[in-house]
Amino acid sequence: GKMTGIVKWFNADKGFGFITPDDGSKDVFVHFSAIQNDGYKSSDEGQKVSFTIESGAKGPAAGNVTSL
């Protein structure tokens, strides 16, 4: 299901970062391709987002990331 969290950091040059879930669980990796914004796929530190957890090649990753 959908979770909410805060972007801990995001490196636009490398195209990835981490989200800290609101439920206190482990930080989740986020790749720019998962960000659902139109246009520039980046996110700012401290941005509140909703997301799903997908199982990626390197473990859990955020999917369907949407700014709230």
Rank of each mutant, 00 (worst) to 15 (best):
G1S: 11
G1H: 12
G1E: 11
G1C: 14
G1P: 13
G1I: 13
G1R: 13
K2E: 07
K2N: 08
K2C: 13
K2G: 06
M3P: 03
M3G: 03
M3V: 09
M3Y: 11
M3T: 06
T4W: 07
T4P: 01
T4Y: 08
G5V: 05
G5Y: 03
G5E: 01
G5D: 01
I6M: 08
I6Q: 07
I6C: 11
I6E: 04
I6K: 10
I6G: 02
I6T: 13
I6Y: 11
V7P: 00
V7I: 15
V7C: 11
V7Q: 02
V7M: 12
V7T: 01
K8S: 06
K8C: 09
K8R: 11
K8A: 06
K8V: 07
K8I: 07
K8Y: 05
W9P: 01
W9V: 02
W9I: 02
F10C: 06
F10L: 03
F10K: 00
N11S: 11
N11D: 11
N11Y: 04
N11Q: 04
N11K: 05
N11P: 01
A12D: 07
A12V: 12
A12Y: 13
A12N: 09
A12W: 15
A12E: 08
D13V: 14
D13L: 14
D13N: 12
D13S: 13
K14Q: 07
K14I: 09
K14M: 12
G15Y: 04
G15F: 04
G15V: 03
G15T: 06
G15Q: 03
G15A: 03
F16D: 00
F16I: 06
F16K: 00
F16Y: 14
F16W: 14
F16M: 03
F16R: 00
G17E: 01
G17D: 01
G17R: 00
G17I: 05
G17W: 04
G17P: 01
F18L: 04
F18A: 01
F18N: 00
F18S: 00
F18W: 10
F18R: 01
F18K: 01
I19G: 00
I19Y: 01
I19M: 01
T20A: 10
P21N: 03
P21Y: 05
D22K: 03
D22C: 14
D22N: 05
D22I: 05
D22S: 08
D22A: 06
D23S: 06
D23G: 06
D23F: 06
D23L: 04
D23M: 05
D23C: 08
D23T: 05
G24D: 03
G24V: 02
G24M: 05
S25C: 07
S25P: 03
S25M: 05
S25G: 13
S25Q: 06
S25H: 06
K26F: 08
K26I: 09
K26C: 11
D27P: 07
D27H: 05
D27Y: 04
D27I: 06
D27W: 07
D27R: 04
D27M: 06
V28A: 01
V28T: 02
V28S: 00
V28H: 00
V28K: 00
F29N: 00
F29T: 00
F29D: 01
V30C: 08
V30K: 00
V30T: 02
H31S: 07
H31N: 04
H31V: 05
H31L: 07
F32G: 06
F32Q: 09
F32Y: 12
F32V: 12
F32L: 10
F32K: 12
S33Q: 05
S33T: 12
S33P: 02
S33C: 10
A34D: 07
A34G: 06
A34K: 08
A34W: 06
I35G: 03
I35Q: 03
Q36M: 13
Q36P: 07
Q36S: 11
Q36D: 10
N37Q: 13
N37A: 13
D38A: 13
D38Y: 14
G39A: 10
G39K: 10
G39E: 09
Y40M: 11
Y40L: 12
Y40F: 14
Y40W: 15
Y40D: 08
Y40T: 09
K41P: 10
K41W: 15
K41I: 13
K41M: 12
K41D: 10
S42M: 13
S42F: 15
S42R: 11
S42V: 13
S42Y: 13
S43K: 10
S43Y: 15
S43P: 15
S43F: 15
S43T: 15
S43N: 09
S43C: 15
D44W: 15
D44M: 15
D44K: 15
D44F: 15
E45V: 15
E45H: 14
E45K: 15
E45S: 15
E45N: 13
E45P: 15
E45D: 09
G46D: 05
G46L: 11
G46R: 08
G46F: 11
Q47R: 12
Q47L: 11
Q47H: 12
Q47W: 15
Q47K: 09
Q47P: 05
K48R: 14
K48C: 12
K48M: 09
K48Y: 11
V49M: 03
V49K: 00
V49D: 01
S50G: 04
S50I: 09
S50T: 09
S50M: 10
S50D: 02
S50F: 07
F51T: 00
F51M: 01
F51Y: 10
F51A: 01
F51H: 00
F51G: 01
F51Q: 00
F51V: 01
T52P: 01
T52Y: 08
T52K: 03
T52V: 11
I53E: 00
I53C: 08
I53P: 02
I53R: 05
E54C: 13
E54V: 15
E54A: 08
E54M: 13
S55W: 15
S55I: 15
S55V: 14
S55M: 15
G56R: 09
G56F: 09
G56L: 07
A57T: 12
A57R: 13
A57L: 13
A57C: 13
A57D: 10
A57K: 12
A57W: 13
K58H: 12
K58W: 15
K58I: 08
K58D: 07
G59E: 02
G59N: 05
G59D: 03
G59C: 08
G59Y: 07
P60G: 04
P60Y: 10
P60K: 09
P60L: 12
P60T: 09
P60E: 07
P60R: 14
A61E: 15
A61D: 03
A61Y: 15
A62F: 02
A62K: 00
A62T: 02
A62R: 01
A62D: 02
A62E: 02
A62Q: 02
G63K: 15
G63E: 08
G63L: 13
G63D: 06
G63H: 14
G63V: 14
G63Q: 14
G63W: 13
N64I: 06
N64V: 06
N64T: 06
N64L: 08
N64F: 09
N64R: 08
V65K: 02
V65P: 01
V65L: 04
V65Y: 01
T66V: 13
T66A: 08
T66N: 07
T66W: 06
T66L: 09
S67C: 13
S67Q: 11
S67L: 15
S67N: 12
S67Y: 15
L68M: 10
L68G: 04
L68H: 06
